[in-house]
């Protein structure tokens, strides 16, 4: 995993990288963002509930799923935050550490989601 300095230097959302991955298929890209915007809220809500309940197994599983979703979308910083949370949940980290890791992921998501929404607004024009 990248260290924190590298993570901070990453863009919130690497749109050119995603373009490259989908072979510049604009329609496909829009669909992927739409699916992510549909699935992300309920997945992170489940993760928040799992962390609050101290459910390490579900916390690890859900943060693993989020890590994949975010990485595929080109959101490396948020993916790194999800990876950190997964690592802590898998190694039975302390409750405070888990909550801090979740907060970090929520902060990254708070930066990412407006960018996705702005993109969708732009392409719908």
């Amino acid at each position: 995993m990248k260290n924190s300095e590298e993570s901070i230097s990453e863009q919130v959302w690497n749109l050119p990288e995603l373009h490259e991955r989908v072979e510049n298929d604009q329609e496909l890209l829009r669909e992927l963002v739409t699916i992510f915007r549909r699935d992300f809220p309920r997945t992170i809500r489940s993760l928040e509930e799992a962390v609050a309940a101290g459910d390490l197994k579900n916390s690890a599983s859900l943060s693993h799923a989020l890590k994949g979703m975010l990485a595929n979308l080109g959101a490396a910083r948020a993916a790194a935050a999800a990876a950190m949370l997964e690592k802590m949940a898998s190694s039975a980290g302390e409750e405070t550490s888990l909550k801090n890791a979740l907060n970090a992921l929520q902060r990254e998501a708070a930066s990412l989601l407006p960018e996705l929404d702005a993109y969708m607004k732009e392409v719908r024009r």
Binding site: E20, R21, V22, E23, E31, L32, N72
Partner: peptide
């Protein structure tokens, strides 16, 4: 996706959303 494109096969976004990795060429 590049290999799928080269084969002229379109993969739906619903499937890509479930992929572990989507890699560029």
């Amino acid at each position: 996706m590049a290999a799928a494109k080269d084969a002229h096969v379109r993969i739906s976004s619903n499937m890509l959303a479930l992929a572990r990795h989507v890699v560029s060429r």
